[in-house]
Structure formats: C-alpha cells, structure tokens
Design a protein around this nucleic acid. Structure first.
Lengths: 345, 345
DNA sequence: CACCTCATTGCAATCGATTACAGCTGGGTT
DNA sequence: AACCCAGCTGTAATCGATTGCAATGAGGTG
C-alpha cells in the first residue's frame, strides 16, 4: 500500500528526488524536457504524494477539522455540507468529528485534531461551560472558530445568527396571530443557543404583554422525543397556552405531533414555532413555521475567518471577531395568519 | 502551534528522545524512576504526540476513511454514526467525506484518503458503474469495504442487507393489505440498491400476481422532491395503483405528501412503503411503513472486515466476503392492516 | 577478582517530501 | 579570452516519532 515514493519516480525518470518534487509541486524551475520525463514516470507508476510526509515537512495539511455536537441533527449536517463546500473552493478538506453532545468526547476530538496538525478548527461546542477548557486550550494552539453555539467566556472568533432578533420576529408573528400566552420548550441552558433564544423570547414576550408562566418554560434536549414529552407535561399540568415556542425544529416537530395526538389542532388551538428550518420542517403536518439560518453564509464567514487567522502570525493576531447574521422567519402552517383568534376563544 | 516535541520533553526530563518515546508508547523497558520523570515532564509541557510524524514512521494512522454519497441523507448519517461508534471501540477514528453523489468528487476523496494513509476505507459508492475505476484502484492499495451499495463487477468486501428478501416482505405485506397493483419509485438504476430493490419488487409482484405497469416504474433520485414529482406524474398519466413502493424513505415521504395533497388518502386510497427507517419516517403523517436496516450490525461487520484485512498481508488476503444481513419490515400507518380492501373498491 | 548476564538507556537511521545551498553548464559581455 | 550570470539540477538537512543495535553498569557466579 502506498508503495510508490518520490524516490522511485526519480529513479525511473533518471533525476533526483528534488527535481521530482519541484515538478510535482510546481515550485522552482525545471526544464520542459525533464518535466515531461518526470510526469511520464509519475503517471506510469501511479504516483500519489504521501500527504503525511508532506504535512510533516510543511506543517500544513490543507485540512480543517470540524466538531459538531451531533451528526444526526439535520441542522448540523446541513451546516457541515455548507462548510465542506466553502472549504472546497479553497482547496482544503474537512475532517469531521461527532462529539455525541459529550464535552469529554469533544475534548478528545479536539486534541486529536490538534495532533493531526489540521490547519484550523471549526467547532460548535456541546456545552456552554463544560466545553470551555478544551475549546480554550485548542484555540491557543490553532486558529479556531466557534459556529452557531459558543462557550461562555471564551475569546475566539464566532459566527452565528442573532437569536434575539430572530425571536423577536417569532414573537411578533405569534402576537399578530392572536397569541396572548406562550410556553417555551428548549434544551437545558447549557447551550448558548437555547440561552440566547430564551432571552429573546422572554424579552419580547414582556414587551408584547404575552403571558409566560414560569412552569411553562421546559428545558430538556434537542430531540423530537423531548418535544413530545414536554407537551405531554404541559397538558397534564394545566393545559396549553396560545403558542409554543421551541428552541429548535426537532423539538417543534415532537411538540406538534404531541399536540395533535392529544386532540389540540395546530395551529387551530395552539400555534407552534421551530428554529433552524431543517428540511423536514417543510414536510411536517402542518408544515412548520420556523427561523431560517443562512447556513451558506455562516459557513463562508467561518472559513474566511480561519483563512485569515492562518495567514497572520499567531502573536500579532488581531482582536477576535463575532459575526452575527440576521436570520429570517419562514411562515408556514403551524401558526395563524394575521389576526385570527384561537379557535373557540 | 504544536510546539512541544519529544525532544523538549527529553531535555526537560534529562533523557534521550528514545526513552521518552518508549515511555509514552508503552513499548520497551524503562525503569520506574525514569518513567516518572518523563511523564512529569510531558505533563508539565502539555506534550501531545504529533500523529503525523508517528504515522509517517509507522505507516499506520489509526484512522479509517468513509465516503458516502450524501451526508444530508439521514440514512447515511445514522450509518456514519454507527460506524464511528464501532471504530471507537477499536481506538480508531473516522475521516468522513461527502461525495455529493458525484463519482468524480468521489474519486478525488478516495485518492485523498489513500494519500492520507488511512488504514482502511469504507465506501458506499455513488454510482453503480462510474464509481468502478476509483473504487477498484483504491481497493488495490488499501483494505476497502463497500457498504450498503456496491459497484457492479468489483471484487471487494461488502456488507449490506438483502434487498430482495426485504422487498419480498414488503410485497407480501401489501398483498395482505389488499393491493393488486403497484408502482415503483426509485432512483436511476445507477445505484445497486435501487437495482436490487426493484428486482425484489418485480419478482415478488409477479409471484403474487400484482400488476405492475411498465409506465408506473419511475426512476429519479433519492429525494423528497422526486417522490412528490413522481406521484404527480402517476396521477397525471392514468391514476394511482393500489400501492406505491418506494426505494427509500425520502422518496416515500414525498410520495405520501403528494398523494394526500392530490386528495388520495394514505393508506385509504393508496398504500405507500419506504425503505431505510430513517427517524422521520416515524414522524410523518401517516407514519411510514418501511424496512429497517440493522445499521449497527452493518457497521460492526464492516469494521471487523477492515480490521481483518489490515492484519493479513495483502498478498495472502483470502477471498472477499459479501455479508448480507436480513432487514426487518416495520409496519406503521401508511399501509393497511391485514385483509382490508381499498376504500371504495 | 575476572567474567558473564540482563535490564536500561542512548545513538543514529528511518519514514517521504521539501528546500536551502551549492555546483554545473552554456551563452552573453567587455 | 576571461569573466558573469542565469537557469537547471543535485546534495543533504529537515520535519517528529520510532526502533535496531550497541554501550553502559549493576548484580551474580565461580
């Protein structure tokens, strides 16, 4: 395996390894005749550079590492796709790791990426505080950009959306649809995204005079199951409010399902909103009103920041950037059109 | 970045690099006192091996590469998750690549994995024939296992499910539900999976005397959109059969949606089945009857084959294994319970 | 006391590609 | 004719970890 080395190509072409390297990496001057001989030999032998050896010598791998909390969450997979696309344009490749929402696994992955000499790391941290040591240490060694979520109290580049602004749009829309009370279903506050989204939710609710009962703020995790369970609890403990605002689409999908299963039509009896605009939010019954994140743009900015960090010397690296993009509300069928009151109200 | 080398640890501990290496990789004999000194020094400096350098020397990277047609297809992401899990137990890591369903990108990814000296490759080829050269060449250099799909006429290890047996179960179930005619919606026959599934479909349909009109076999790609479009075409060109058998869940999700949108209740007027049992098949309305693939088992077998291939010398590698697991039918609400005739029949 | 054994430890080569530096060659200058 | 220069090519050092071989020294034996 991987038998053909530059030395063999050199021998076959009757030149030195230096010359072969110069031809194959297009650096330095080589006469046309020799170049032809070398290329010929390389093709004949099926030569392929050994990226490992090159990386050791250059301490550059043209590879970027990415760590996400869960590869089965469609939001992250589409983010990964966008990142890979953006990197492709720069001739870089992506090394993807799944942290399984566990800061310890996450720390191992980060360490392993550092050991692999990736040129930079893009991470969406699993935990708002427990991810800190690993992320911080990693950022001291390599260019690192946090994506979507971020760790409390770290100073690294970050790209994401303005959750507060998004929630403002959501609440305004629900209010127009007649909602005067609302529940919030999110993950534990250990993710910055839930924290931000909840903050935006609460602030605008107050401003619009939408009632939020403290026992109707339910925190679990980003999953369909949790959405279902949370709604079951709401129903058991005093009934549903006019609207249920969910911190992501998976939760919203589960919540919608549970509402309907318990005989509360959506959006007839209760409006439901999601967040992320994953593909299935469009397919759900009813199609989900949600917040669309500009994934390609987020990815592009992240890649740009990494590239910039890679070029400048570590010591003179400037202040870190926090890039916050504005997401857009996608109105579908799980909320009511303007002004319609709740059924039977 | 990555500043601490074995030499620095050696200096700090007052020993040679050889000794440090022996301590840190637990090989060879080292006195307890020296071992302590070395570990102490390594910890103090925050030493981490440079995997690149080690890989160059050992020509082993403890990394397995995986190439899938599309990372946004939930079936593949859950397969990836299973593979990563299985590899974790062996102390290996996964390098994941997305081929975007393009054999050319796929070829590039494979080449890059070879160049990166991965220990083995797991690939679900994008195309039944065009993927051949790249897969074949790669398999000559490295242990390689094809997963789920395979390339026509290649001799490598393969792990997947028995599509024909699965389709047999599907057809039997539909037949019991009263179906006497059926359509098939799949991807182009360029994927072995569609090919196999269609073969199983057709064979059992014949045996059960279920009518399959040639113009009701529609081939596009694995996507929700195609499922919707295909059903629209069926309706436009002569109406729906008793059952629609789809080559994967995404198609089935789209098909179901389109049926309902055009006023054909599922399973009332038409039964629909999927394949893969992705998470959203359970959440769809109605929940999808589908074929569950034993993903963990598939992944475990693939990893086992790779490990075995890695141990034996390439030359004396035995015959290649084709491991075919039996999937199970998951009956949900998009098909009819035993014996019920179509509505209005 | 001479000699042997065996556990430790160090030296230096090695993996494969890159590149600073030096050497060579042929043509152009004065 | 002596000298320069530019363009090409080769030699050898380098990246960091591993490991065969040799050296060292402590302890044991006769």
């Amino acid at each position: 395996m991987q038998r053909v080395t530059i030395a063999q190509v050199a021998e076959r072409a009757g030149v030195s390894t230096a010359t072969v390297s110069r031809v194959l990496s297009r650096r330095g001057q080589v006469s046309a005749a020799v170049e032809r001989k070398v290329r010929r030999a390389a093709d004949d032998l099926g030569y392929q550079v050994n990226v490992i050896a090159r990386a050791l010598r250059n301490s550059r791998t043209d590879t970027v590492g990415m760590v996400v909390p869960s590869i089965t969450n469609p939001f992250f997979t589409s983010l990964v796709e966008s990142v890979e696309h953006a990197l492709g344009k720069e001739g870089k490749e992506l090394f993807l790791c799944d942290a399984r929402s566990d800061p310890r696994i996450e720390a191992r992955r980060l360490a392993s990426l550092v050991a692999r000499n990736v040129d930079g790391i893009i991470v969406s941290p699993s935990h708002g505080t427990e991810s800190r040591p690993a992320v911080q240490q990693t950022a001291e060694r390599l260019p690192l950009v946090q994506l979507d979520r971020f760790v409390d109290g770290t100073t690294t580049d970050w790209v994401g959306v303005d959750d507060v602004a998004a929630m403002r749009q959501v609440m305004d829309h629900l209010h127009e649809g007649g909602a005067r009370s609302a529940a919030f279903i999110g993950s534990l506050m250990t993710h910055s995204s839930t924290e931000q989204r909840f903050a935006g939710f609460r602030r605008r609710a107050e401003e619009l005079d939408i009632e939020v009962r403290p026992d109707q703020v339910l925190l679990g995790d980003y999953s369909v199951e949790w959405g279902e369970a949370a709604v079951a609890r709401l129903i058991a403990e005093g009934g549903l409010p006019d609207a249920i605002v969910c911190a992501d689409d998976l939760i919203a999908l589960g919540a919608t399902r549970a509402c309907r299963a318990h005989g509360f039509p959506v959006p007839g009896k209760v409006q439901v909103t999601g967040y992320d605009d994953i593909e299935f939010s469009r397919l759900a019954e009813p199609a989900l009103t949600t917040v669309h994140q500009p994934r390609d743009r987020i990815a592009a900015e992240a890649v740009r920041l990494l590239a910039a960090a890679g070029r400048t010397n570590e010591a003179e690296r400037g202040p870190h950037a926090h890039i916050s993009l504005v997401p857009t509300l996608v109105v579908r069928d799980s909320t009511r059109a303007t002004g319609a009151p709740p059924e039977g109200a």
